[in-house]
Structure formats: structure tokens, C-alpha cells
């Protein structure tokens, strides 16, 4: 690990200021991704700005038709929240399936979403549940947020403050765990909002994406058969020594259908 300066930010404004005045700063949330990166010397920030002491960045609320999860809320808190469980059980399930208990008690939604790890679970939730990512500067629609492999629409110095999920009529999330890492090889969120359906996929591609063909088909008829024959091209997908792109493409199809099966059961 290289040396760095360590700061506790008192509040969001303080964090924003520190981001401006330091040379090559990085925000620190749960550290579940950032710390291993530092240990392996894959990043060399001059300053780490820890968000842990900002109380205003923690908590969950249900506001009308939305569930608002503040950025520093851990996966374990989301998984255990009765509000989330009642409003969007699929989101509680998603959080409950991330990593292991240690990771769930440290890792945060803000860190996960900001990181846009292709294999992370939350991006499917954010995209599938038509969320809005709120920062200290603006609101970003989920559809505009994930832009590439570990890339998002966030600008340098921008801080995620909360993620605002729209409560669906019904939704279901399922993931195929990576045989080694346990991350999502493919994770699919299917959510229905009246006549509209969203199908979001994580794990398979460089970043989370929607499968419009499946959404269209499900909007016409919300039944497993509607998606059973919709194949997605493997060409743009990721592959590794355990799971090839072709296999991932196949799994997207299987998991989308299984989500719908679970919802119509």
C-alpha cells in the first residue's frame, strides 16, 4: 500500500470541499473494494476522505412511491429493513445476497453504485427499479448512470448521497453466483410498473444494462413464455475462466424467465 492522507469528513459540504482541495482524493465508504485495491497498489490516491462519520448519509425511508436509501447505508441494513422488505422485497433479497456477512456489514450502496463493478448486484436493482441516483450536485436517472466497465456518469468530486428506488407493483431478483468469487455472473431484476416492465441485467456485460426486447415482450404478455425464446447476443458480454460470454448470454435468458416464473407463481 502506498502512503496517503486520511480525513474524516464532518458533513457532505466538508467532504466536497476536501475533494476539491486535495491533489488526488478518493472517497472511502465501506472500503470493501477500495482497500483491496490500495493493498494491491492498483490505485494511489493522495487523500482518503472517509464518509463514515456523516450521519446524514445513513438511513432508509419510504417517501410516497419511493424507497430512499442513503449512500452510506450498508447492505446488511437494507437486507434487514422491514420497510424495504415490505415495499420492495426484491431489493431486500438483492442486498441479502451480496457477498458474505462481513462484506454486507461494511459495504455500502453508495460505494457499490459508484464503483459500477460489472459483477455487482446493486446496479441491476438501480436500473431495474428505475432509480434515481442523487448526488451533492444533481439527480441522475438510472438509465444514464452506468456508462461502462467501472464507469459511471459521476463527475470528479461528485458524491452520491442517496439512491431513490421506485416501488414496483412486483419485482424479483435472481443471481447466478460466480463459482469462485460468489459475485453475480448474471443477475436479473424484473420489475413491473403498471403496463411497463423493466428487465435489468448485471454481471453479464461491462456494466448493467436493460434488455428491451424482453421488456417489450413482457409488456405484451407477462408470462415466462414471453421471454423464453429471447436470446441476447454474446458478442458484447464478458467472459472469464469460469463463465464464457456465450454461457452468460444463455444464463440471462434462463434467469429472466425464472424471475417471471417466480412472479406469476
Amino acid at each position: 500500500m502506498h502512503n496517503f492522507n486520511y480525513h474524516h469528513a464532518a458533513d457532505i459540504a466538508d467532504a466536497a470541499l476536501k475533494l476539491k482541495v486535495t491533489v488526488e482524493p478518493k472517497l472511502l465508504a465501506g472500503g470493501m473494494t477500495l482497500l483491496p485495491t490500495l493493498k494491491n497498489r492498483l490505485a494511489q490516491p493522495s487523500d482518503l476522505i472517509d464518509l463514515a462519520k456523516i450521519d446524514g448519509l445513513k438511513g432508509i425511508s419510504v417517501e410516497g412511491k419511493e424507497v430512499v436509501v442513503k449512500a452510506m447505508t450498508t447492505h446488511a441494513v437494507v437486507a434487514a429493513s422491514t420497510d424495504v422488505r415490505k415495499a420492495i422485497p426484491a431489493l431486500a433479497d438483492l442486498a441479502d445476497g451480496i457477498g458474505d456477512p462481513a462484506v454486507r456489514h461494511r459495504g455500502t450502496i453508495g460505494g457499490s453504485v459508484a464503483n459500477s463493478d460489472p459483477a455487482a448486484d446493486y446496479p441491476a436493482g438501480v436500473l431495474g427499479l428505475d432509480a434515481v441516483v442523487e448526488t451533492n450536485e444533481r439527480k441522475i436517472n438510472a438509465d444514464d448512470f452506468f456508462t461502462g466497465l467501472f464507469e459511471t456518469a459521476l463527475k470528479p468530486g461528485e458524491i452520491i448521497t442517496a439512491v431513490r428506488f421506485k416501488i414496483p407493483d412486483r419485482a424479483h431478483y435472481m443471481k447466478f453466483r460466480h463459482p469462485a468469487s460468489g459475485y453475480a455472473v448474471v443477475g436479473v431484476m424484473v420489475a413491473q410498473y403498471g403496463a411497463k416492465v423493466r428487465v435489468a441485467v448485471t454481471g453479464a456485460g461491462p456494466n448493467a444494462f436493460r434488455v428491451r426486447a424482453m421488456e417489450d415482450a413482457l409488456e405484451k404478455s407477462f408470462a415466462p413464455a414471453s421471454v423464453a425464446n429471447i436470446k441476447i447476443p454474446a458478442g458484447d458480454l464478458l467472459g472469464d475462466i469460469h463463465c464464457s460470454a456465450e454461457y452468460r448470454a444463455h444464463l440471462v435468458n434462463v434467469y429472466a424467465r425464472r424471475c417471471v416464473e417466480a412472479l406469476v407463481k
Binding site: 460466480h178 463459482p179 469462485a180 468469487s181 460468489g182 459475485y183 472469464d240 475462466i241 469460469h242
Partner: peptide, 13 residues
């Protein structure tokens, strides 16, 4: 070596 971490090497759980 492509399987050089526990993220790539499948330790049974």
C-alpha cells in the same frame, strides 16, 4: 496464472 486469487480460484464453500 489466471487463477491466482480466491476471486478466480474456486475454493469450495
Amino acid at each position: 496464472l489466471l487463477s491466482g486469487t480466491f476471486m478466480d480460484y474456486g475454493m469450495p464453500r
